[in-house]
Amino acid sequence: MTRWIFLIILFLTAAGVAVYGYLGGFRKPEIAVVNTPKPIFLLGHYYKGSVRDEGFGPLFRQAQQLRASGTVRGELANIYYNDPSKTRDTVEAFIGLIVADTTSQKVPADYRYRTFAAGQRVIQARTTASYLIAPNMLYPAIEETAKQQKLKLRQVYLEQFAEEGPSEVLAVIE
């Protein structure tokens, strides 16, 4: 009986490692310290409150549905005004889509624009891993880079999870 339990645990462990590898979990993120070359426009909703609040989760789904319906062309993105990897309960964020500009598309009535300004010095972290595991790879890489290069993070993060192409986090530094 013990042997069967051991084999089942071994099989489940191997399956977990295989899925993690398939999702890109063993890929190393690309890190660079850069200045944002142009403003990045987001269309979405501002949210401040508990991550457990029933109003938080639907904001992501609404942005996805807006994109999927073709009403707005853009990539899913968020601006966090506190570190989401360290926040256990309260989050301050702008959740929506990165759009090319603020004039070429019709804006749904309850949506607003936010701008991630040009010329900001940021740590840029990118990976081609799945969006399911990308945040757990990118935020620690940003923290490590800031620590190694003695940079101070301003706790403003732009996350972009492209359908095609790499996932990216820009962390504003002082």
Rank of each mutant, 00 (worst) to 15 (best):
F60E: 00
P39H: 09
A68T: 08
V51Y: 05
S69F: 01
D53N: 15
A77P: 02
P39R: 09
L59E: 05
G44T: 06
F56W: 13
G55N: 15
Q64I: 12
S50I: 03
E54D: 10
L42G: 04
K28P: 01
Q65A: 12
G49R: 04
I40H: 07
Q64E: 14
L59R: 09
F60G: 00
Q65E: 13
R52K: 14
L59D: 05
F56R: 07
R61C: 01
R67I: 00
F56K: 03
Q62K: 15
E75Y: 10
A68V: 03
F41I: 12
A32R: 13
G57C: 00
L43T: 02
G49I: 07
L76S: 11
I40T: 15
H45C: 01
F41V: 13
T36D: 10
E75G: 08
G55M: 10
L59P: 05
Y46T: 12
N35E: 15
R67Q: 14
Y46E: 14
K38Q: 15
S50G: 07
R67Y: 01
L43P: 02
N35L: 13
Q65D: 14
V33M: 09
A77N: 03
T71L: 13
K48R: 14
L43S: 03
I40P: 01
H45G: 01
A77S: 12
G74P: 07
G70K: 11
E30P: 00
P58Y: 07
A77R: 00
R52N: 14
A63C: 05
E75L: 11
L43V: 08
A68K: 12
Q65I: 05
Q64V: 12
R27S: 11
G70F: 11
R73T: 14
K48C: 01
F60Q: 00
I40L: 13
G70S: 12
A77M: 02
R67D: 03
A32T: 10
R61P: 00
V72M: 04
G49K: 05
G70H: 09
S69V: 06
L76P: 03
E54V: 06
K28A: 12
V33I: 15
G44R: 01
A68M: 11
R67W: 03
L76Y: 11
S69M: 08
S69R: 10
F26S: 08
P39L: 01
I31G: 07
P29S: 06
F26G: 02
L42I: 06
P29W: 04
A32P: 02
F56P: 06
G55R: 15
